[in-house]
Simulated assay, not measured.
Amino acid sequence: MFRGSIVALITPMTLTGALDEQALEALVAFHIENGTNAIVAMGTTGESATLSHKEHRHVVKRVIELAKGKIPVIAGTGSNSTDEAIELTQAALQDGADACLLVTPYYNRPPQEGLYQHYKKIAEQVAIPQILYNVPGRTGCDLLPPTVERLAKIPNIIAIKEATGNLERGREIMERCGDDIIVYSGDDATAMELMLMGAKGNISVTANVAPRLMSDMCFAAINGDRATAARLNAQLDDLNKTLFVEPNPIPVKWAMSQLGYGSEGVRLPLVPLSESLRPQVLAAMHKAGIKC
């Protein structure tokens, strides 16, 4: 359904943490103009953990309005409460999202059967395409390939964002599930290799800063053109690393502020990028051909 570069969109804010509506409008236009293939609104990079439900729904709805059907919008609707995830997913369906991205339940550390039942219930309750999201480094919970294989049989579970950075994990999911599920990378540093192995796109933090370059790299890799993908990925390599020198989205928020899309503001308990790390991020932007 979705292929290529799928940006994990930041939520532009003022320095006080208020939503910056003008910057959000400009940001969506920036991605439409620069080849991004789909937008994830209210994922981890969008600071979903610190927005109220009212704000969360507002941002998703506003991104859908701004996209105007020109680019698909995937709403982040995961929660560690199954009922809350259902509520957020129903809201996204009502507001016109093309699909939903559901992170594994964080903190409560459910067993594999709990994960299966969690996702199964959401899929049965809400008739919208759903993308599983596995990022154990953040959640303390790992959605294992046998469980993904079971979930892939549910018709409206269409894909997984595999953010472990473990290429063998991605390969195993593809081998187990075949055409029953699409695999997307959720790790910019290893995305090229996973797409060359058969993944169909990258749900990307780096795409915020370098949308055209990331889109071109993704399609080269998806099409099996290793030489072109490697050449483009070499330009992105430093960005893929430095945008994680502090917890996401701290560095990417600062980088986007340098491009004029909101301030560096993030919500507590996150704080703006350390002064000492800013030259490193700026150098990576310059290497990628991004002019500030």
Rank of each mutant, 00 (worst) to 15 (best):
A92K: 03
A75P: 03
G76H: 09
V148T: 12
G265R: 08
D225F: 02
S215C: 05
T14A: 02
E193M: 14
P247E: 10
L270V: 10
T164W: 08
H58R: 15
Q94K: 14
N208W: 04
T190P: 02
V59W: 06
A189N: 11
A23L: 04
K291R: 01
A283F: 03
K121W: 07
E33H: 11
P279H: 06
H286G: 01
R3H: 14
G46H: 06
T190I: 10
D188T: 11
T11R: 07
L88T: 06
H58E: 15
L167W: 01
K287D: 10
G43K: 03
L282C: 05
R109E: 14
P110H: 13
V281E: 06
S5H: 05
D216H: 04
E246I: 14
I203L: 14
P136R: 05
L19A: 08
T77N: 06
A123H: 06
Y106G: 02
I290G: 04
V266I: 10
T164Q: 12
V60N: 13
D216K: 03
K120W: 04
A75H: 04
C292N: 01
T16D: 15
H58D: 15
A8V: 12
Y119W: 08
V266M: 13
L273M: 09
L24K: 04
L232E: 02
R109S: 11
N108W: 01
R267M: 09
T242P: 01
L236G: 03
D238K: 09
E84P: 04
V59K: 03
C218P: 00
L102G: 04
G78T: 08
V183H: 08
I154S: 01
K120H: 13
H58T: 15
T164Y: 11
A191M: 07
I86P: 07
L66H: 02
P269S: 09
G198H: 13
V135Y: 08
A41F: 00
A38S: 07
E47Q: 03
S276R: 14
V73H: 03
H118P: 02
V209W: 00
Y116L: 13
A41R: 00
L101G: 08
A38M: 09
P249W: 12
A92E: 11
E168Y: 06
Q112D: 09
I154M: 09
V73E: 06
G224P: 13
L243E: 08
E172L: 14
L143G: 02
P211R: 06
E87D: 10
A207I: 04
I290A: 02
C218R: 02
I182W: 13
E162M: 11
S263Q: 14
Q112G: 09
S263D: 15
L132F: 04
Q130L: 15
